[in-house]
Amino acid sequence: MDYISPWAIIVAAIFTSNILLANFLGMCSFLVCSKQIGTSLGLGAAVVFVMTATTAINYGVYYGLLVPMGLEFLGFIIFIAVIAAFVQFVEMFVERFSQGLYHALGIFLPLITVNCAILGAALFMIIRKYDFIQSLAYGFAAGVGWALAILLMAGLRKKMGYSIIPKAFQGVSIIMIITGIMAMAFMGFGGMVRIQ
């Protein structure tokens, strides 16, 4: 496989292979937390931070510990443990040193442990055989892409408050369809770069 430059990965992970719109990851919190722009901004920021950091840590753990010992099959359980531990640690750290940040970000942190996008980023990094710099770029950009998608959705939902939606379509249904249209729009970037 040709070496893909980290810059290409960043552009691709945000636009062409958006982790939410093309890989469908992180849908649960996307649906629940996209009601207000403020909330989605906070969650998006938390995801960018946690995803970048855990991808880097998981890279180290996987190639530094699991591969030399031949324990690759334990990957899933180790990744999720690393993510849970990291989130817990960050929560305590933020609470201790920055009350303001804790109130802005704190409530979103526990939610992130079960955000499948975080685990998904770690798994994609292994499957696509990224090196460390590429993984770091991918973790960061995938987070940014997710944040972008949820922000767009929050904006759209705000507008949608003024529209009359058929009863059966209210709630999740219409959001799904709008997400579909959004995904279609993002596919327009498809020609630029491709990863995967």
Partner: peptide, 15 residues
């Protein structure tokens, strides 16, 4: 592709 998945699920939930 991705958009089809979203739209089908959306319609299914509406149903």
């Amino acid at each position: 592709l991705a958009p089809g998945a979203f739209v089908v699920l959306g319609l299914l939930i509406a149903m």
